[in-house]
Design a protein around this nucleic acid. Structure first.
Lengths: 206, 206
DNA sequence: TCCTAGGTAAAACGAGCGTTTGAATGCTAC
DNA sequence: GTAGCATTCAAACGCTCGTTTTACCTAGGA
């Protein structure tokens, strides 16, 4: 069992991620979370202070690593001067794809992310903006450089559409049923290709 | 006040829509809803039977009309044989745009729709599929006819991406701050143009 | 060995939840 | 007028919520 190998904090974070993905932040109770994590109810408030803080930490645990990978992939893409939109989109999507495939419930996290997108929760938005806004700024600048003919407002619009499409599509990976004989991993990689092709064409639209 | 002109049922539906958009289905309580609607708490269970049923009725009230308009617009688009992807996309988007602009809180409803999209609530999905699945089927067929070179799987993927992008973008209309001197209506119409252009390019991607 | 600090445990707190009840209303038809 | 029905109302139901309290356990340093 998880109980043996992971600390109480880690088990709470893992269980919270799963339940937030399935039931939402308001819909999942701390009693459900602590029962799934096999820890005492009071452990959440002891280790995290409050439910809202737990929610933030669920994001921080994944996003620190995810956004580091994204920036790293962006840097590599920018080194090669011949790299096009597809490479920038890949630098954004591929780390999320890797995360969603890894052991330990990364797949649940992308669904949590989609929920956060749909929620217009101000506290959560501020937390995300404060901690990860700089990543979006860097991608925005990179796209602006590759799409010099697009005026700022148009680029803003299109990137917003792209972000929404990506977030939704990532969260829905499990829903579009894959053909038999296609592994989960092949399915996800194919999804990423489709996403990138679609988004690149949309960004290049006249 | 609303209290004068609308029935108890209508006031409950309106208040529920607003609060579901802001707080989510689990996050908004019947006490908040009935207080905002200026009706007695028990009125919800009297008129709707349960909270879950109220949620369904919030959808039905808007979607009956919205999807009727969409099918009507689709029929008109299909009459003109020279109509392209943009017209089909317009038939899908414009009615939603009109709804989001109307008096009486249609703007809140598109955000409720985005929440429903992010929720993978099985009961809600079944309700939507049962009641409005035929609309999506008709649009799917229309797109398939205009994109004969795309194989079925690829079209499936792309329409899924389009639906996600549209849903999120519609819900986010209020978030992208508009330039000064641009009316709310102009802002939304411009948004629809951007969406259609982006989606059409994405669908046509090689 | 005792002490201490960090962690866990069970139990309870008050508040709010969805739902139900039963009496009080208002309205329509006779 | 009054009977009958639909609606509204205040109150309460049992339950679950996030949080707090208090006691207990168990290393590790003095």
């Amino acid at each position: 069992m998880n109980s043996q190998h992971f600390s109480t904090k880690e088990r709470i974070l893992g269980a919270a991620e799963q339940l937030f993905a399935r039931l939402g932040f308001a819909g999942a109770s701390l009693r459900q979370v602590t029962a799934a994590a096999n820890v005492n109810l009071a452990a959440v408030n002891y280790h995290f202070g409050s439910k809202e803080n737990l929610i933030n930490e669920v994001f921080r645990r994944r996003l620190d690593e995810l956004n580091a990978h994204r920036l790293q992939a962006l840097d590599e893409a920018l080194k090669k001067p011949e790299s096009g939109l597809e490479h920038l989109l890949g630098a954004f999507i591929q780390p999320a794809l890797d995360l969603s495939q890894d052991r330990g419930g990364g797949g649940a996290f992308v669904r949590v992310l989609a929920r956060a997108y749909a929620e217009h929760n101000d506290a959560l938005r501020k937390f995300l903006s404060d901690n990860y806004g700089h990543v979006m700024k860097r991608f925005h600048a990179a796209f602006a450089q590759r799409l010099p003919d697009l005026d700022k407002e148009e680029l803003y619009w299109r990137l917003d559409i792209v972000a929404g499409a990506l977030t939704y599509a990532m969260a829905d990976f499990g829903v579009i049923k894959r053909k038999t004989g296609v592994t989960e991993q092949q399915h996800r990689e194919r999804a990423a290709e489709h996403l990138i092709r679609f988004a690149a064409a949309g960004l290049r639209a006249p």
